[in-house]
């Protein structure tokens, strides 16, 4: 059979598969579970201007404070659920943090610490350090996100700018293995000093043992059926 007369179907780039499973698919009528349902991962968000609210002001002021090199330091801006996130290039993090803290138009005086997230599927940016900032002067909030690859888990320390990050960076090192270069004493804080591995990473098992309850065996939490 010739295929010449068929219309050309444009190739739609498909997002990578987030998970396969029996339940949880949307957009198809097949809920039997036999269709081999897959859920595709959402693409990484990037919000174009205008961001809305005070978010544009923050971006403009930061651009001015950095001498017009905003797009050089901030790879991506995301506005999601009413929150502003700057994805900052790691080598520019300290400079950006310093500007955010000291510039009169920005004045993010209060940092609420560093949190880590591990995305094993994002190649080259597996480990993320997430910093939440708060400006008391302007009553604004801002999130900084810095990524580093698993193979080179280094992020410059922001302790000189925000001394409160001391324990927070130690915690993120302890749990995710992100090395904060320049930290005064990057040691474990929650886990014992001689602990192996970084427990909050996705490749670190939760552990646990099966428990017997009324004659039935309940598997360990990470062995139980998952619908995700």
């Amino acid at each position: 059979m010739s295929t010449d007369n068929l219309p050309e179907v444009p190739q739609v780039p498909e997002e990578p598969i987030a998970r396969r499973g029996m339940f949880g698919a949307s957009g198809t009528g097949d809920t039997s579970g036999y269709g081999g349902l897959v859920v595709r991962r959402k693409p990484e968000l990037s919000t174009p201007r205008p961001y809305g609210g005070y978010f544009d002001t923050v971006a403009d002021e930061l651009d001015r404070a950095l001498g017009g090199r905003f797009s050089d330091a901030v790879e991506r801006v995301v506005v999601d659920r009413g929150e502003l996130t700057f994805h900052v290039r790691r080598e520019r993090l300290v400079e950006v943090a310093q500007a955010l803290r000291d510039d009169p138009g920005l004045r993010f005086e209060l940092s609420l610490g560093v949190s880590g997230v591990h995305y094993p599927h994002l190649e080259g940016e597996e480990l993320r350090a997430v910093i939440h900032l708060c400006s008391i002067t302007h009553n604004r909030r801002l999130r900084l996100e810095v990524s580093c690859p698993d193979a080179d888990p280094h992020i410059p320390s922001t302790v000189p700018v925000y001394p409160t990050h001391d324990w927070h960076e130690r915690e993120t090192w302890d749990f995710f293995g992100i090395i904060f270069d320049g930290h005064p004493a990057l040691t474990r804080i929650m886990m014992p000093d001689d602990w192996d591995g970084h427990p909050q990473r996705k490749d670190y098992p939760l552990g646990g043992i099966p428990v017997e309850y009324r004659g039935a065996e309940i598997p360990a939490p990470d062995q139980r059926r998952s619908y995700s």
Partner: peptide, 8 residues
């Protein structure tokens, strides 16, 4: 991550 459990 869109699932029934917190990602982090």
């Amino acid at each position: 991550d869109g699932g029934t459990r917190p990602y982090r």
